[in-house]
Write a protein that binds this DNA or RNA. Structure first.
Lengths: 201, 201
DNA sequence: TCCTGACTGGAACGATCTATCCAGAACATA
DNA sequence: TATGTTCTGGATAGATCGTTCCAGTCAGGA
């Protein structure tokens, strides 16, 4: 086995990384095994050696890989701000920036595949569901750390993630950062109102 | 031509209806022409007679058909409530109900195909973008009719639609109505705060 | 009745899909 | 170097993909 993973990227890692990229842009159904192999510079025998379950098996790992990148983006945005209002806005604004920079192609690395999986693959669907929950927990944790009452942080994180996913979808399809930018402001407002117990939820 | 469209459904209409259904559940890439033909009880010659552009042509019309159904759902929910806060909540709750009733399969009729189209079909992508804008306009119109300041109604409708789409995605993938239900409450709060100019946005 | 256009049945096309096969290369350990 | 494991090259299978083609059915107008 290759131990120095920092320098030499093995075939297996290359397959995962390339697949994550393709799944993010095109989704599971539109991404062919042949396309993956060409992009990774690998052959089918390598793929089925490292991933006996085939395309679906590889996709599951690629989703997790992409999700970790996305989690890093969220953590970075959340950590940069020192109030819960600016923290959630930073997430949306960072997303808008990355999305625009990639020509509206690199959005949420899971969304397309997750939606397709509902009808196509229980395995990928469950995996996607877990990843969404992880992201929500990341947001909720940061909100709690910034003095948002624990009782509302969880549900607030849910809606923040929903709005991020939805706005990212709209921005991506319309090739317009406005939905994400508008959501950033509205999420700030929502958090501001929700953290003061005086107004209730 | 068949004039009494109420009773006898022509092959063309059947193709559109069945395709809209399949696109809603599985998206564009996972839906095969053969599958459409089997479900509609038609042959390929009929399809390519009515839709010279083939699958993509048919999908475009099917999206518009599904979008009109969805617009009807939105209009119904928005009309039932007599305040902007309850109106947006009704949209989310109706969505949650329909989604759960269908076994988490019948969500937004455009979302899956729209996301896939970003990488696959400029034609379907543009069509999807227009449909999203129509829905946003429906929400904005109703908000304005319920005394939400015109200046904020448009942007508010944007975030409402984003949250609906995102929450519907989350609910669908996790097979849990919670994201939509939570979004309903939060959207109510957001509208309540945003309509009173005192708090600004 | 004949003609014309709209529409359909069904076979067939080439291309592409995912997955499998086996021989051989590359590798680590001894 | 010998040996066993891990990994890869390349050809191939069988199925399915979207699409095309042509002969044929059907309705309405002259």
């Amino acid at each position: 086995m290759v131990k120095d993973g920092a320098t030499a990227e093995g075939t297996r890692d290359r397959l995962v990384r390339v697949t994550a990229d393709l799944l993010q842009r095109q989704g599971y159904e539109a991404t062919g095994v042949k396309e993956i192999l060409a992009a990774a510079g690998a052959t089918s025998s390598s793929l089925y050696h490292h991933f006996p379950g085939g395309k679906e098996d590889l996709a599951r790992e690629a989703l997790a890989y992409g999700a970790e990148q996305f989690a890093g983006l969220l953590r970075g945005a959340l950590a940069r701000a020192d109030t819960p209002e600016t923290a959630v806005a930073a997430c949306a604004l960072d997303l808008a920036e990355d999305l625009a920079a990639s020509g509206w192609s690199d959005g949420c690395p899971v969304a397309v595949t997750a939606l397709e999986s509902v009808a196509g693959s229980p395995q990928l669907r469950e995996a996607s569901a877990r990843l969404f929950e992880q992201w929500q927990e990341i947001i909720a944790d940061r909100l709690r750390a910034l003095d948002v009452p624990a009782a509302v942080a969880g549900e607030l994180a849910s809606t923040v993630l929903c709005a991020l996913e939805g706005a990212e979808l709209l921005s991506r399809v319309t090739a317009d950062p406005a939905p994400l930018r508008t959501a950033a402001r509205h999420l700030s407002t929502l958090v501001e109102v929700s953290r003061s117990p005086a107004r209730g939820r």
